[in-house]
Design a protein around this nucleic acid. Sequence first.
DNA 1: CTCACAACTGCAAGCGCTTCCACAGAGTAC
DNA 2: GTACTCTGTGGAAGCGCTTGCAGTTGTGAG
Lengths: 346, 346
Amino acid sequence: MTGIKDVAERSGLSVATVSRALSGKGNVSPASRERARAAAAELGFVLSYHASSLASGRTHNVGLVVPSVHRWFYSAVIEGASAALLSAGYDLTLYNIGEDPQHRHSVFNDFLLRKRVDAVIAVSLELSEDEMQQLLAVHRPIVGIGGPLPGASTIRIDDSAIAQQATNHLIGLGHTKIAHMTGEEAYEQDFQLPGTRRGGFEKAMNDADCQVRPEWIVSADFTIEGAYAAARQLLGGAPERPTAVFAASDEMAIGTILAARDFGLRIPEDLSVIGIDGHDLGKVMGLTTIDQDAKGQGALAVRTLLGAINNGLVLEPADTEHPTKLVVRSSTAVPRNDAAQAGAAR
Amino acid sequence: MTGIKDVAERSGLSVATVSRALSGKGNVSPASRERARAAAAELGFVLSYHASSLASGRTHNVGLVVPSVHRWFYSAVIEGASAALLSAGYDLTLYNIGEDPQHRHSVFNDFLLRKRVDAVIAVSLELSEDEMQQLLAVHRPIVGIGGPLPGASTIRIDDSAIAQQATNHLIGLGHTKIAHMTGEEAYEQDFQLPGTRRGGFEKAMNDADCQVRPEWIVSADFTIEGAYAAARQLLGGAPERPTAVFAASDEMAIGTILAARDFGLRIPEDLSVIGIDGHDLGKVMGLTTIDQDAKGQGALAVRTLLGAINNGLVLEPADTEHPTKLVVRSSTAVPRNDAAQAGAAR
DNA sequence: CTCACAACTGCAAGCGCTTCCACAGAGTAC
DNA sequence: GTACTCTGTGGAAGCGCTTGCAGTTGTGAG
């Protein structure tokens, strides 16, 4: 294997100068810089990042901790972060916590402590006191995505506001009989997100003098499958059906649409559905949603961290609110007359 | 930061013995081993993997190269590999090639050469001569998933056979007017996969004396969205419609089902649809498919690599065929009478 | 012409581990 | 008794870089 020594020899420079030339730090004459570069290129030399890390303490590696990979939001964040890191020459180490509590434990108690990462991005993780301590003990910048991380910076959307916006979109169309699909209580891996969105829904409903019916608040696990099952319950048996559903995620909105179709309900004539996310499938399904640009959030997290690393600043715990956008498609419409009347007769 | 020296001091052993005790290599008396462990635990000591890697040449890190994260197959492989690596105490470095050719180039020409990984898993990547050279130059075990990688071991499914199996399932139900949705020519990131599956389809059709109609072979980009658009073309205008569609992936099968519904076609009464994959959504959609256990493939790749690493063997280039399973759900059925007759009247 | 100062450069001391080697002590076999 | 082998241990030499320090040059100012 060719090392920096070989490059030094070939270029007639010292190892120190070659190191400075290739890293761009310190003063090196343009001529030497060029000689070093040329020699490195000829030899096909690539820095050993281990040695470099050991000597400098900088790893050029960012850890990304996610609860799962296959759910849309996480995969989008991963893609956004990955692209940004790749461009910056950084590696991305993925820690997929998954369902296994053992995995979760070892990620926080071993993996992250191995001094392998320059920074950590934690996505939608409600961390225990202990876990947060472990994270902070690494003494690396941390950015959370998708919820508040006490003691760290976070990138998030205004869940309460967009929940109100989504609800108001339905109310604005004339709906009053609106159901809400929220996340399961147990699903508190995702911060208080379900609760916050539900709160926004209830506020909007109350503000508009619409009744919030407990039996029309159903919960699922944020997946299409789970929502499908829950929506069958909601739309199936009951004597009275809502005219619209606001789902706390696009995946759940899609599950709802699929279930509605099974009952022969037309979207949006018989049922309006709105979600939150900006899922790729939204276009195909004609889903009205609030796009939260998950990729952009991933990329922003990376920019924030790299900025902190490069400037050697400590990252002040601060919340950054990421913009969202209402995207109206064909899954929401004015309720049919009879339904609207039934609603008006409250 | 506490280092191995501190542990040595506290335990009254030498650094060398502590290192051996904690890594489990070399001869250490049970008593010393216990003393070292205890001291490490008390100090909350975690090995610096950089220093360890530099000294030993082993990184405890595996590189996973994927074309994208959000497509089902890749995210499933990632989850499978991630869980297996986590259990083994290995880090997973994710290289998401994405669309950007620049990224692809730097992954193969910089990132993988940094001597940071003990092994590489390449998923569904058709590598150029050059890229393969770069990969082999790393002198690490490599496993490919999803297609042949000249010079490396691969884990794959028998694409031709399962395509025939899927087609035969439809034929067995009485279908003769069968369309096939394949991958786009340009999509050769995925080995020759589309072509192979298409070959299997054609073979099965020919064997059963069913006519393969060129206009019923459509292609899409393996996504739900793309397939949806392609299926609208297929099912929309033409005077005669197929009674069944065999899609080369579940995502495309789902897109086809969504498009069919738009035209008021009932599944499976008016149209049978079968896919390949074992997508999570399959259950909700009632999709008949051939499950290829992508998670299992990811986990198997990891086991293969770790085996090679631990035994210090060079990994013989060998293909491992991963088993698949036909899962019959509600998206396929005997064609309706009129359709069957029309088919029989060929 | 001298001096201060900046721009370059090389030497060498690490970074925190692993592992080769040497050596002590305890068996085991003759 | 000698001559081994075998286990357990510590010393110390790196692994391949980065970077503080000091030395060498070149420059403009005094």
